[in-house]
Design a protein around this nucleic acid. Structure first.
Length: 907
DNA sequence: GCAAGGTC
């Protein structure tokens, strides 16, 4: 009986053939494809002598594609792609593999499928079945299931052949079809929409610019943009902490304040004063513990990519290319594996033995194998297993080959050192923690001595810092060498590194271990993001605009949820709990509706793009209309006036040239809807002035007015004027909402038109140009600036910042607060209208604060007593409402500075 | 010109 065996890749065909033939009587011959050889040998399956023919494919044999008439971009509407017929076929570059399969299948009675034992493998199995049964319908089809390429497993597998599982393959079919339809429709839609509308000055190296959309690449971009927005939205905030050091026996202990830090300066100063007045430290606790630092888990693909990025700054894509080459040459095991756990049957000692002769780590390998050292430890797994491949490990000894680049050397070294570390004992350290009390405040210091380095000896990519501290006993008292009130500033998180990005993708299930690096590379290839020398990613204007556009539509297409839902559905299909047809129908129906809605709201995408890119002269009236263009701006005569709706629901028509041009028409606050129509006003000049279809909220307008009104903002519209007078205007473009209900991504935009000033929360300028900022207003008292009142502090004369209260009782109420850290002045904005001037205010519970950390910092300290020791220049009030004093340096009495910067600070 | 998933 002739048996045709097919593996997913040539390497597996070779390995399995070698195992089954016991390396005896095996012949190899060429197939039609130069990579996919055919191995022949005899083998007995359950008493039946068989002539085995073993060949392979290279991953998927077929591709899903649209029928011919839907392939040309302009041949159909992108929305049609949700229903256009699709079919699977073998692409040109796989035709030779197909021919080999056909030729061999014709002379076989059995077909045994040795594809990888995962969903994709099962799907490829059915592709092979399709090709083979087309030429030989009488084939008996069997599936070999194996979890590792080791002898016992393979022999067991071939003696216990199973049936292929259709539902596993169906899940992949569903995934392929959804990916194709969503990807192609959105890509064509957004590419064709933007390319004509804007001048996108991206150097494409002669390639056509494609604004692709994909269910993996977009969430990957989303991670990058979200972090970038988080950084942009960060408002630095000063905090204070008390640090103490003690120098004794030639060693220094650095004690940190167990409160961490406080955002309330006054509070921190009071506590600091108390400490300085009674600086004797008493040791309250001394703890000694043995600490272990464990070696990493066995290496899988994602860890290899992350570590190569961290240690060598190699891109994940390059890492995989180099790893593939090392694998092809036989130096490391298969590099695309999820498994981070060695099978108990793996002969780990032999792998270590091979490395004994290496000039750099050979001695360590020898120590590992010597039972006397006690260095060996069986590796601990991380709980992942793809059932197909072992963790990445060295398979051949090398001190470096002539054809290797530096990167080949580094990566091979990482794989070897990582493997040796895995089978080593953890590092052992002795940690001493000392706690002291000064005037009731607690501080702690930690010292560490490394007792045994163990795996750290070979894994020099990791370190474990340690320092010696003096010896302390409970009850011991000492005077600190230094006791300092330090200030710091909160910092935004860093941009995402490549390792961070891989972690995000892994956590959210975006891509597979074999494709994650592709998605990252795609962001760079599509000009959606750039990567700096430290492997950190910044979105480009293009990437940010696309995410912003969809975000403004209210769609989370750039979030990982869509992929998560698809993964969940695929699991249902693969378990047989849902049919492929059901999942396809519901998923595609949902995405089609989403697509049609996105197309209706394309104005949001265009608006977001308009923030970053110049409009192209090619852009037609359709785009202008979609953006809500009402007329040419009569003030700057350069830009268009567009209708906008703010997040709080208010409408305005503003110039796109903002902030250079501030021309704006504020619309009534009672509007619920406004849409620019294609009708033009025949009165207002210069035209065209497009009419707007207004809809007012019934309860907010007088009874004699109609809810619907087709109006003009050009000045001719009496009804609109009356409505504005009666109902008032909507507020000026407010900031995007913040807080837990809105992600930080909504909190800002880089464009000055949209991003609110950090100082005053108003849009139209940056905090540097803020009219309320010190130096920008040169007079005291209240003044008018762009229609806004500005206030100087009546206590110290410093200009105030306009802020919005966020406390339960006063949420949304505006107030001015003195910018000076040393002054507690504030005044409610509305109180200025009735002539009330500012007052020296209490920083009590009624103090508005938009920052929860600040509120927490204040609340964390329950006292605020008087020091009473210093003359008070002004009376201030503590968090609890108690009066405090000390507006001059308590150390030297100088009113020009405070104790934290006193030249005599310290003890 | 489009997706993501295999692979040499």
């Amino acid at each position: 009986m002739n048996v045709l065996n097919v593996a997913e890749k040539p390497s597996v065909a070779k390995s399995v053939s070698t195992i089954l033939s016991r390396n005896q009587g095996m012949r190899m011959r060429e197939g039609r494809s130069r990579y996919n050889k055919i191995f022949e040998f005899n083998y007995t399956i359950r008493g039946q002598p068989c002539h085995m023919l073993f060949t392979s494919v290279t991953g998927h044999l077929m591709e899903l594609e649209f029928d011919e008439r839907y392939r040309k971009w302009h041949a159909c509407n992108p929305a049609d792609l949700f229903r256009a017929p699709v079919h699977k076929s073998v692409p040109e570059d796989k035709k030779d593999i197909k021919r080999t399969l056909e030729e061999e299948a014709r002379r076989c009675q059995w077909l045994v499928l040795w594809l990888d034992c995962d969903r994709e493998g099962e799907n490829i199995a059915f592709e092979v079945i399709d090709v083979c049964t087309a030429v030989n319908p009488h084939l008996t089809i069997k599936r070999a299931r194996f979890s590792a390429l080791i002898e016992r497993e393979i022999h067991h597998s071939v003696q216990n052949l199973e049936e292929p599982k259709k539902c596993l393959a169906d899940a992949v079919d569903a995934r392929q079809e959804i990916d194709l339809r969503i990807g192609a429709s959105f890509t064509r839609f957004q590419t064709m929409l933007m390319k004509d509308a804007f001048v996108i000055d991206t150097a494409t190296d002669g390639r056509n610019l494609v604004l692709s959309y994909g269910p993996c690449q977009f969430p990957t971009l989303g991670f990058v943009v979200e972090r970038y927005w988080e950084i942009q939205a960060h408002e630095p905030e000063e905090f204070w902490s008390i640090n103490c050091a003690h120098d004794s026996d030639g060693r220094i202990a650095k004690f940190s304040w167990m409160r961490g830090h406080l955002f309330d300066y006054t509070c921190a100063v009071i506590i600091y004063e108390m400490c300085v007045e009674e600086p004797t430290a008493t040791v309250t606790n001394v703890r000694q513990q043995e600490k272990l630092k464990y070696p990493p888990h066995p290496l899988n693909t994602i860890e290899l990519e992350k570590r190569a990025s961290r240690y060598f700054r190699m891109s994940s894509e390059h890492t995989m290319k180099v790893a593939e080459e090392l694998y092809q040459a036989g130096f490391i095991s298969y590099p695309r594996t999820e498994t981070d756990n060695f099978s108990s049957r793996t002969d780990l000692h032999t792998i270590v033995q091979e490395q004994q002769g290496h000039p750099e780590w050979g001695v360590y390998a020898q120590r590992l194998l010597d039972p006397g050292t006690g260095l060996w430890r069986n590796p601990r797994g991380g709980g992942h297993d793809d059932k197909a491949h072992p963790p990445i490990h060295p398979t051949k000894f090398s001190t470096g080959e002539s054809g290797w680049s530096q990167d080949h050397r580094k990566l091979y070294e990482l794989v070897v050192r990582h493997f040796l570390a895995c089978v080593s004992k953890p590092a052992v350290g002795a940690e001493t923690t000392v706690e002291i009390g000064i005037a009731g405040e607690l501080f702690s210091a930690c010292g560490r001595v490394i007792l045994e380095k163990n795996y750290l000896d070979v894994y020099h990519y990791e370190s474990w810092g340690g320092s010696l501290i003096p010896t302390y006993t409970i009850g011991q008292q000492f005077i600190p060498s230094t006791l300092i009130l330090d200030s710091g500033v909160t910092r935004p998180p860093p941009l995402l590194s490549e390792a961070d990005l891989l972690s995000c993708m892994d956590k959210e299930g975006i891509g597979t271990d074999a494709t994650m690096h592709d998605h990252i590379k795609k962001l760079l290839d599509r000009f959606y993001a750039t990567k700096d020398a430290n492997t950190r990613f910044t979105p480009t204007n293009l990437g940010e605009a696309l995410v912003m556009g969809y975000d403004d539509m209210g769609y989370k297409l750039w979030k990982p949820y869509l992929r998560a839902v698809m993964e969940r559905d695929m699991k249902f299909v693969s378990e047989g709990n849902k049919s492929k047809a059901d999942v396809l129908a519901t998923s595609l129906q949902l995405m089609e509706a989403c697509f049609l809605d996105a197309r209706l709201n394309k104005g949001k995408l265009l608006e977001a793009m308009a923030i970053f890119f110049e409009r192209s002269s090619r852009s037609g009236n359709d785009e202008l209309h979609a953006m809500g263009v009402v007329r040419r701006c009569g003030l700057c005569q350069e830009s268009d006036m567009v209708l906008r709706k703010n997040r709080d629901g208010n409408f305005m028509v503003g110039c796109l040239g903002y902030p250079q041009c501030r021309n704006a028409v504020w619309l009534p606050g009672s509007l619920s809807e406004a849409v620019v129509t294609t009708n033009t006003c025949n009165i207002c000049t210069p035209g065209p002035v497009y009419l707007i279809q207004f809809k007012f909220r019934q309860l907010e307008i007088p009874p004699n007015y109609s809810v619907n009104h087709l109006g003009c903002i050009g000045g001719c519209d009496e009804i609109l004027s009356q409505m504005t007078e009666i109902c008032g205007r909507g507020s000026r473009m407010p900031a995007r909402p913040r807080g837990p209900t809105a992600p930080p991504s909504n909190a800002h935009h880089t464009n000055p038109r949209q991003r609110p000033c950090v100082n005053c929360q108003e849009t139209g300028h940056s905090s540097n140009d803020c009219p309320l900022r010190s130096g920008n207003v040169g007079h005291r008292g209240r003044s008018e600036h762009n229609g806004e009142a500005s206030v100087s502090c009546t206590s110290c004369g410093t200009p105030c910042i306009l802020r919005t209260a966020n406390t339960a009782n006063n949420r949304g109420r505006k107030f001015y607060a003195c910018q000076s850290q040393e002054c507690n002045f504030f005044v409610w904005e509305d109180s200025l209208n009735d002539g009330t001037r500012g007052r020296s205010a209490s920083r009590s519970n009624s103090i508005p604060s938009s920052n929860p950390r600040r509120a927490g910092g204040r609340g964390s300290r329950g006292r605020g007593g008087q020091t009473g020791a210093h003359a008070a220049a002004t009376t201030f009030v503590s968090a609890t409402g108690d009066p405090i004093s000390g507006r001059r340096c308590f150390r030297c009495g100088d009113p020009s500075h405070f104790a934290n910067v006193c030249p005599n600070r310290g003890v």
